[in-house]
Simulated scan of single mutants.
Amino acid sequence: MTHDPALDAHEHAEHAEHAAHAGDPFISQVSITVAILAVLAASVGSLETVEEGRAITASAEAVLRQDEATDAWNEYQADSLKKHVYGIAADAGGPRAAKYAATAKDQVAKQDEIRKRAQEDEADRDKLMKESALHEHRHHWLTGGATLIEIGIAICTVAIITRRRSFWRGSILLAVVGLALFGAAYLA
């Protein structure tokens, strides 16, 4: 079963509208609270989904950068072997010794470029992993915030059924704590 914050918000608003027709001012206040909380829950839930997607995307990009760095280091090692082979061939002497020595020297310059590329890929990977962790951190805080607001909506329903203000106040308190978690997601 999938969770759709927008659909949940719509359903809660409809229930609140039906309860508001009862004519009781308290019921009307609680119904308005339900509608407001439903909008807040949908908003926080949507941001939660966005942060989750960003975390996954940044993590996937980090894996790609790691693959590119690994490929570059493999190329670096292969060129290192070539450099040594040409160096041995140059040391052996013969008519092509100068050419082998030049090729070995060229491999050193090529290796420097490859090392730089590999290190840049690793730096990008590290940056993307930190970005992914930040989005994941926000996702967790937003999950808590949306959950508390949704619990507040459920408690509002209890307040409507029992006509007890303490439940209504409790639901508002939960929503305030949920909004504090929302704020913590972007401040922490």
Rank of each mutant, 00 (worst) to 15 (best):
M1K: 11
T2W: 08
T2E: 15
L7G: 00
L7N: 01
E11A: 12
A13M: 06
E14F: 09
E14I: 14
E17R: 15
H21D: 13
G23C: 06
D24R: 09
P25G: 03
S31H: 01
I32W: 05
I32Q: 15
I36W: 08
I36V: 15
L37S: 13
A41I: 07
A41V: 07
A42E: 11
V44D: 05
V44S: 04
S46P: 03
A55W: 02
I56G: 00
A58N: 07
S59E: 10
E61T: 04
R65H: 13
Q66W: 07
D67E: 15
T70K: 15
A72D: 11
A72P: 03
Q77I: 05
D79H: 11
K82L: 12
K82M: 11
K82V: 05
Y86F: 11
Y86E: 03
G87N: 04
G87V: 00
I88A: 13
A92F: 02
P95N: 09
R96Q: 10
R96C: 01
A98P: 00
K99I: 04
A101N: 04
A102S: 15
A104I: 01
K105H: 12
A109S: 12
D112N: 06
R115I: 04
A118M: 05
A118W: 03
E122A: 15
A123F: 08
A123G: 09
A123H: 14
R125Y: 09
K127Y: 12
S132N: 06
H135F: 15
H137M: 10
T143S: 11
T143Q: 10
T143I: 06
T147I: 06
E150I: 02
A159G: 11
I160E: 06
T162A: 13
R163A: 08
R164A: 07
R165H: 04
S171R: 02
G178T: 01
G178R: 05
G178F: 04
L179G: 00
L179M: 12
A180C: 09
A184V: 01
A185D: 01
L187H: 03
A188K: 06
